[in-house]
Design a protein around this nucleic acid. Structure first.
Lengths: 328, 328
DNA sequence: TTGAAAGCGTTACCAG
DNA sequence: CTGGTAACGCTTTCAA
């Protein structure tokens, strides 16, 4: 910056002003500075700027994994909305729980982000303490917790599970099963299953029929294998609600392989409305979640908070939508 | 840090040492400091640390998009390997080209990352200048460019396109088409198509039969629609190589809808080996790309460079693999 | 409209 | 093994 200042014949603070508030500088001066910046290929050092201004223009996100079509679009939406406001995304994945969320939150906080986006459901007491102490805006996404830490945007996973189960009931199904859930630390998956169980009870459809095998890593394979186990144990099942569209794909393929007519004999529903679920692909009946919008909204909420807007909502329920296609 | 130092009765630099190189501090002193850190809930400020040490422990990645199963696993692998080395990932997406790569590189560089991972193929002259000027380790991923800027890890897209085309030829196909490619700025997709065209020529299979419609955003829908157009124009086509598995899914569905026997009458091959392509799902013949490994390797290469390892390879070809399943 | 000086919270460097 | 001092490259604050 000193070099630029010298070349333009001004002081460094003027260079700084040209870069951040060009309208505050006389056009003639501004041009001199701008051409010096260009000539020198100068790129300001945000690290120094952040230290000085106490603002990082960086927002951290802690996600379990990017694989499996679940969070990718949310991260996409978040990155996009931050970008529109001149902010950057710092991404941490807990992946295979090689690192705890607690750990990730600590390192994220050490970067002094202007905001934090969390996808996990429950936080340890230490994590909550660190968050409280940091005084950073926090947005929990992909579920509306009963007691949000700060802000939250998403939908009710319990309601979503309940809604799809009731939908299957409405279409005439009575022996409804749930497969593919319960992988380690999947808080939201458990909530969906809970919604399923609740609906069964409300409708008087008997006890849950549920298969899960956390050992199978591939969701598609899990769907195929769980379907087998399920039909062995409850051969009269007439509808299957799958924990995700990937699971549903595996179940659908396996059902066809075994000669079960879908949806006539067996209805199969998924969750997520992944790319492959649509009309031109599988034609899977599923629950659509506004993943991209969740991320984009989370970003906007942090930006509004930063601007000091007090009337901004703290909880945003973006809902979900049952999408009926051919499979159920 | 001053508070911690005062509480422990030492100087700030000793606190700093306890945090970064505990073994260099006498156990008794260390314990005093550690308990002060704990008591005060002190979280060091990496911003200040970075400014002082000229190291950010942050690596930036510029990706076109996270949607569509292509780069998500690579970003996952990168985040994971960085994490193992105590580094963080800074993510930028060019998404819908609302922001140019050039722009993203500039903002990434302004964070003074310890490394930069690029997924795009070609860079503007200004981008190259900024990169050169920054003197940061750069890894280009998902293709091995003829003239890499610095380091590269991936595979040859041209060879991959060529290999699948030759594979289809080996299985007896003679009228091979290519669909779904050419979305804006898709450098690597073009390279694959080029490999396809080269193979046709080598094998004497006539001119390329290729359909693309950049206006259709959904890849699955594009596959379905392009298949229609293709069969209208070249009804005798006996094999279709799709630009991605998503496109292949759309094509497969549409082919079945139209009553074409796959693979008997029409072979369909994809690219990417997405989750849904596998044995338990679609059973799609495709090209498997080691996406996660590409990301993980990129991270490792930057770490090695940082450590000053001079014997480290600059170009790593992770190859690809033709995976034969039922569709071709 | 521009500038000088004083930090921002750490780490590097050199002593002791 | 520990500490004092001077950066790191900006922005803030206050003056002119």
């Amino acid at each position: 910056m000193k070099d630029v200042a010298r070349m333009a014949g001004v002081s460094t603070i003027t260079v700084s002003r040209v870069l951040r508030m060009p309208e505050k500088v006389k056009p003639a001066t501004r041009e001199k500075v701008e051409s010096a910046v260009h000539a020198l290929g100068y790129v300001p050092d945000q690290i120094a700027g952040s230290l000085s201004s106490r603002k990082t223009r960086q927002v951290a996100a802690v996600v379990s994994t990017l694989a499996g079509s679940i969070f990718a679009s949310t991260v996409d939406g978040l990155a996009q909305s931050l970008r529109e406001h001149g902010h950057e995304l710092l991404l941490g994945t807990t992946e295979y729980s090689s690192t705890s969320e607690e750990n990730l939150i600590a390192t994220a906080l050490s970067r002094r982000p202007d905001g934090l986006v969390l996808t996990s459901g429950d936080h340890t007491p230490l994590a909550r303490r660190m968050l409280a102490h940091a005084g950073v805006p926090v947005v929990e996404v992909w579920d509306i917790p009963e007691a949000p830490f700060d802000m939250a945007v998403g939908f009710s996973n319990v309601e979503a599970g309940r809604a799809m189960t009731r939908f299957l009931h409405q279409t005439g199904r009575r022996r409804i099963a749930f497969i593919g859930g319960l992988h380690e630390g999947d808080h939201r998956g458990r909530l969906r299953r809970q919604g399923y169980a609740t609906a069964l009870q409300e409708l008087g459809l008997g006890p849950p029929r549920s298969i899960a095998d956390p050992m199978i890593v591939s969701m598609v394979e899990r769907g195929a294998r769980n379907l087998g186990e399920l039909l062995e144990r409850w051969p009269d099942t007439d509808a299957i609600f799958c924990a995700s569209d990937s699971v549903a794909l595996g179940a659908l393929s396996e059902a066809r392989r075994r000669g079960h007519a879908v949806p006539e004999a067996l209805a199969i529903a998924g969750f997520g409305d992944f790319e492959f679920a649509g009309e031109f692909g599988l034609g899977l009946t599923t629950v659509r979640i506004p993943g991209y919008a969740i991320g984009a909204t989370a970003g906007q909420m942090i930006m509004r908070r930063k601007r000091g807007e007090l009337d901004a909502p703290k909880i945003v329920d973006l809902g979900f939508e049952i999408v009926r296609r051919g499979s159920a």
